[in-house]
Design a protein around this nucleic acid. Structure first.
Lengths: 154, 154
DNA sequence: TAGAAATCAATAATAATTATCATTATTTAC
DNA sequence: GTAAATAATGATAATTATTATTGATTTCTA
């Protein structure tokens, strides 16, 4: 399939990234190359790319959806502190589908799993705040700037 | 904690149910007893009950959130055909937290998992439509009426 | 029973996303 | 290479789900 210049740019922006940008972030960045692009176009193309399996959409139920250039099934960790979403290289755990299938009358053909926790940088921040003497490591703040922040974390 | 009559009614409506109603459904039903209740009150109380751990909120990322009177951790199956959400009596699979922890630099303290599949009734419907001779079993339609339907299934 | 505290209903506001539609860009047929 | 057909865009409106605000009402407490 041949892509429009805008769609290609969106795909390009995503490709190879470690973080998992929101539609909004994709929008503000693609805008640098296409100042007139509209948020609707970004959403439209992200949905399209998701549909054809070039990227994947991650919904945590907390904050907006995120997009991952790696469409291969893999897992994610959601940091409760800073809201960042990180990849997890976890061996496949599809055996849980079998376990689930044994208890279910219909057909199970997949699962959505994401892990909840605290990222390295936020653990560090936690430790530092317990020890006021210690200098703040800039690590976490830096991390927060680098990674996507999620609103509405309760 | 003593509950207001509205809050008690919301709790009461949820308790013991097999399905997993949305805020909207709770609203339309509680309205029978409190015709003047507002959707905001329903949302407020559902959040409150969730916070104190009397019920739990289920977000699949597809359609609105759902509420489960059983606050104990357990798993759910989401039927891709009819959008219903069913309980799953699955032995605990917390070992996946350990597996995840081994691959993650921060701290893992939980996971959210739900299974995707097709429920019994929708499997039946599928089978019937392949065989036009067969009479439609009313099972699935009935099921759709009984269970919550989710909008925006793509 | 009066005054404080909690909760309410109504409504406005917000966030995230999808739909509409007239216009522009790209492809295809000749 | 140009015209018609198709596809995609940008702008904007609409929708969906949810949270916040606020003034009125109910309920608890002394």
């Amino acid at each position: 399939m041949k892509y429009s210049r805008q769609r290609e740019c969106i795909r390009e922006f995503l490709s190879g990234r470690q973080d998992h940008p929101t539609a909004e972030t994709v929008y503000t960045n693609v805008k640098k190359e296409f100042p007139n692009i509209s948020l609707g176009t970004v959403y439209r193309n992200l949905s399209l790319l998701t549909e054809v399996g070039e990227i994947q959409k991650i919904s945590t139920g907390i904050g907006p959806d995120r997009f991952d250039w790696n469409a291969d099934p893999h897992y994610h960790v959601f940091c409760r502190e800073c809201g960042s979403v990180m990849d997890l290289k976890l061996e496949n755990i599809n055996h849980i589908n079998i376990l689930a299938g044994n208890e279910f009358e219909g057909r199970i053909d997949g699962h959505i799993t994401y892990f909840l926790g605290t990222c390295k940088a936020c653990l560090q921040k936690e430790a530092d705040s317990q020890n006021p003497q210690a200098e703040y490591t800039a690590a976490c703040m830096e991390h927060q700037l680098l990674t996507e922040k999620t609103q509405n974390i309760s």
